[in-house]
């Protein structure tokens, strides 16, 4: 880990000022990913701005929805009665990720900023455009079973590793941020980026902006939802493919559908056309197959990860079946419902 200075501001404005004054500075809260990367010399901030004492730990009611402070730990969020009752999709996705210890530490805002698990990104001895722009993408033609099948570029095929983010994409959350010029709100679908020719940029947060909260809209799909995660061991592993599915059913027909994928792209992947395709359709397998084909129509494999296209298709169909039947996937009973 490199040398850095440490400050612990007690107000948002002061934190943002610290960040603006030092381009090499980073905010730290849970630290579960940043310290991990610093120990691998992937990140080397000149200064850590400890934001854990900022007043961003509350979950508040807003316009029928909830405002989740950026510092709310993942476990507190997953077990909050309001989340459990109204947004069980989010609770389930959080509990599918990491470990209880890490969920106790990791925060809501930090989860949005976690970086890819690509083995080349993590190994400073190998080329990686995300870590060292212009050095090349080693995952193309390399070990890429975990890598992207949607939205990748010739510069980067890394995936976003978050589970929580997949549920937030499906729920159409908003991210409220503060910068030197005040606050703004970024729709979740626009928060993360595709790699394009700037894979070093994971998201559209400006360098001197701080996440204040994640805002959940009123519609919460508590009756028909699921978070289905497929991985290479039954817990404590990153997704090969995960699916957040949520439906509002009326008379056996789909009135509203939400569908997002994890483990397949540089961002939690949501396809509005696929959601639109489901609207008005009967809640049955044929409809789900159509949606899966639509969302995967642009999918492309890179060798080892070719299988993910078919795996994702099947996972989407199953997740929609689980959601429609009101039998969400349990994160402790490993049998897939």
């Amino acid at each position: 880990m490199n040398r850095f200075s440490y400050v612990r501001p007690d107000a948002v404005a002061a934190a943002v000022r610290e960040r603006a004054s030092d381009p090499g500075a980073r905010f730290i809260a849970g630290g579960t990913n940043l310290l991990d990367l610093m120990k691998y010399d992937v990140e080397a901030p000149s200064r850590l701005i400890d934001i854990t004492r900022l007043p961003l730990r509350d979950i508040q009611e807003i316009d029928g929805g909830l405002r989740i402070g950026a510092l709310v730990p993942n476990s507190d969020l997953a077990y909050d009665p309001r989340i459990e009752e109204r947004y069980p999709l989010l609770a389930s996705a959080i509990l599918a990720g990491a470990s209880p210890q890490l969920r106790n530490m990791a925060t809501t805002g930090g989860n949005l900023l976690q970086r890819t698990r690509c083995v080349y990104f993590y190994d400073t001895a190998t080329p990686c455009n995300k870590r060292t722009p212009g050095s090349g993408c080693s995952a193309i033609g390399g070990i890429n079973r975990q890598h992207a099948i949607l939205g990748a570029s010739e510069h980067c095929i890394a995936t976003n590793p978050s589970d929580m983010g997949v549920a937030l994409a499906a729920l159409r959350a908003n991210v409220r941020v503060a910068g030197p010029d005040g606050e703004r709100t970024i729709p979740f679908s626009e928060f993360h980026r595709l790699p394009g020719d700037e894979p070093q940029r994971d998201n559209n947060l400006a360098a001197d902006e701080l996440i204040l909260s994640v805002d959940l809209p009123a519609e919460h799909f508590a009756a028909n939802y699921t978070y289905l995660k497929l991985r290479e061991r039954l817990s404590y592993a990153f997704a090969l493919v995960s699916v957040a599915a949520a439906l509002r059913l009326e008379d056996g027909k789909i009135a509203e559908a939400r569908l997002a994928l994890g483990g397949v792209a540089h961002k939690p992947w949501r396809d509005e056309e696929a959601e639109e395709l489901l609207r008005g359709q009967p809640a049955e397998r044929a409809s789900f197959e159509q949606a899966a084909l639509r969302i995967l129509s642009g999918a492309r494999g890179f060798g080892e990860n070719d299988f993910k296209i078919e795996l994702a298709r099947r996972a989407i169909v199953r997740a929609l079946e689980q959601a429609a039947a009101g039998t969400p996937q349990s994160q402790s009973d490993k049998r897939v419902q």
Binding site: R117, V119, D123, I143, Q146, R233, L234, Y236, A237, K334
Partner: peptide, 14 residues
């Protein structure tokens, strides 16, 4: 390349 125990999977309790 998977030289860590997040990417090299050994069995977990579950």
């Amino acid at each position: 390349m998977n030289h860590n125990i997040a990417e090299y999977h050994i069995p977990v309790n579950a």
